[in-house]
């Protein structure tokens, strides 16, 4: 590393800094390198996004023409019928019911996660009490715990409580800060809030609940938004738990309704299945596009997925 050659080169480089370097003859010009990078990235993006575009195109295409070509333009086969037939679902329960259920469960989960995880986050970040470190370590451990290891006793618990085939098993745990990721997010965020702020409020006679509500909550809107967005997306996509806990079609969420629809779809009905798949993705995509900045910042700091 420290031979005379490189050292001399270093001096030469330092001297000639600022002018275009002639020593890098082995490198391609920057604009060509950028072009190569763009070509690769565009190709990758195109391949990645193509299935989604195909899904969208197929949803607007007459069912008999879907599996004829890989192209995207529906042309003469354009139709909106898939959405109206699809929305009726299996006849006795339509997608209005599924969407209503999904929105109720998702909305309550978002509220529950924000409420309970912010409270726990404040306790871990700012309050001192016995066993705080132990409890914090336990909380972090639960992030790694696979859901499947808890599923059966949880099922027994909720069935003993008579909660099967209701939204309670899906919603109540969210009010009990069981999504440790979000607790961790709030802890990280609250720790960054200057202590002087809460000290000043304490001198003015504010209790912890007031400090939490009037100072920490308003200052942590990015953390709240990240929690809201990921709660929404995870709950909206969740399949396993609604599959286990919900039995009657009136209570099904969109993913369960969609999988039921898939099971009963005949060859002629693919268009409707594709249309409903597309519609079921729209809330997540919409949420993502409107909160994009916050989400990207949020996962970059905490590694949420």
């Amino acid at each position: 590393m420290n031979g005379p050659g490189p050292a001399q080169a270093r001096i030469a480089e330092t001297v000639s800094r600022g002018s275009p370097s002639k020593s890098r003859v082995h490198r391609l010009p920057n604009n060509i390198r950028a072009m190569i990078a763009h070509t690769g990235l565009l190709g990758t993006s195109f391949i990645m996004i193509y299935p989604l575009l195909w899904l969208t195109a197929s949803a607007f295409r007459a069912p008999e023409s879907i599996f004829v070509s890989p192209g995207l333009w529906p042309g003469e086969h354009f139709t909106l019928d898939n959405f109206s037939t699809g929305w009726r679902g299996l006849g006795f329960v339509d997608f209005t019911t599924y969407f209503t259920n999904s929105f109720i469960i998702t909305g309550l989960s978002v509220l529950g996660n924000i409420f309970s995880c912010a409270l726990a986050g404040y306790a871990f970040a700012r309050l001192r009490f016995p066993f705080r470190r132990t409890l914090f370590a336990l909380m972090l451990c639960t992030i790694m715990l696979p859901l499947h290891a808890l599923l059966i006793p949880q099922y027994i618990l909720f069935s003993t409580l008579g909660w099967l085939d209701s939204f309670l098993p899906l919603v109540v745990p969210k009010f009990l800060a069981t999504e440790a990721f979000f607790v961790f997010l709030f802890v990280q965020f609250f720790r960054a809030i200057p202590r002087e702020l809460s000290e000043a409020a304490r001198l003015d006679g504010c209790g912890h609940f007031q400090i939490f509500l009037r100072i920490f909550v308003p200052l942590s809107l990015p953390a709240i938004a990240t929690t809201a967005a990921f709660s929404f997306i995870w709950t909206w996509n969740d399949f396993l738990q609604p599959l286990i806990y919900l039995n009657s079609p009136q209570n099904y969420t969109v993913p369960i309704g969609l999988s039921l629809f898939l099971d009963s779809t005949s060859e002629s009905n693919f268009g409707a299945l594709f249309a409903m798949s597309l519609v079921s993705l729209l809330p997540v995509i919409g949420f993502f596009l409107s909160f994009q900045r916050l989400l990207v910042a949020g996962i970059a700091t905490t590694g949420l997925k």
Binding site: F124, L127, R128, P130, L150, L157, F175, L176
Partner: peptide, 28 residues
Amino acid sequence: RESIIGYLFLAPWIVGFVLITLGPILAS
């Protein structure tokens, strides 16, 4: 008092941890 307040803030998490996480893991 700060300890009590701490446990109040943490109450939802503790209930959830005991009933939804720790209990089930031992029960399974």
